[in-house]
Design a binder for these strands. Structure first.
Lengths: 148, 148
DNA sequence: CCCATTTAGGTTGTGCACAATCTAATTGGG
DNA sequence: CCCAATTAGATTGTGCACAACCTAAATGGG
């Protein structure tokens, strides 16, 4: 064991990268029909859960910075799915509100996650177990980083 | 259960997306010191495993197309880590060969995956289990797609 | 042998992701 | 009250990712 093989297939980083790409690829045709991308879908998820969040609040939830979110949210606005309004109490903040079209879209995507799970060949139980494992990894990474 | 909550935290797609981002973020400072990015690291992994692969072979392993790989490999070439050579037997093919610097880099990164695993708070066993779960998801997605 | 088809790789355009930088609004210490 | 420091968001530059398209090389059926 003096050699370090570094075989691609053995790397967890690559397994994660591939799985993420494959799952995004499953979402793509479904979201294409609705005219949105996968990251835009995530922003909408954050808004369906709590409408009127500020850009930085969305960024805190999705772990994305303004350099990513500013243009993304503008594209959602151009499609008429959200509206951006300056917060009256703090003019620095931009709150993002769903339009009626943005609200309606929620019903159209409600079945998408289930369709994806089926295509991924996952039972509901294994799905939940995987999700919890992934979330604990993410949590421990972010926890470690906040110790800097 | 007439309502469909679509809570962000409950979505496996989001757990996967977040974990992938978090792990990439762990790699970033380590790879920064070596002057390469995470996708460039994956291409090098594919070459350390089998030097002289063609662009399309690398694409088959990493599931990336020429639109992504062509410029990425050119950047690796500009850094002196790889060389591109047309295959004599089939002039359409471009084979990518590691330079001495490219080979040397392998030893410098050999400990990186372990460091990342530690930071992610994972034991070796849970790491392998996760990897296998992810790989089976990726496999079943790609298997399904080839049935089209 | 010839030309239609296929295959390899590159290019262009759009969108995500992040670092670095900028401006404007807010806050807080003296 | 005033100005330095902080905070929110936007902008710029680089690189990844993919669809659509392009050219050249190889292939294969007639």
């Amino acid at each position: 064991m003096t050699e370090n093989p570094l075989i691609l297939r053995d790397q967890v980083c690559f397994a994660l990268y591939s799985a993420q790409h494959a799952v995004t690829g499953l979402y793509r045709p479904l979201l294409d029909e609705l005219g949105i991308t996968y990251p835009q879908f995530l922003v909408l998820l954050a808004l369906w859960e709590a409408d009127g969040r500020s850009v930085s609040q969305i960024g805190a939830v999705l772990r994305l910075d303004s350099g990513t979110l500013s243009p993304l949210i503008k594209r959602l606005e151009q499609q008429g799915l959200v509206e951006r309004r300056r917060d009256a109490a703090d003019e620095r903040r931009v709150r993002v509100h769903l339009t009626p079209d943005g609200h309606r879209l929620r019903e159209q995507v409600s079945d998408v996650p289930r369709q994806v799970a089926v295509a991924a060949g996952l039972t509901p139980e294994s799905l939940f177990a995987l999700r919890d494992t992934l979330n604990s990894i993410t949590a421990s990474i972010h926890h470690d980083q906040s110790k800097d």
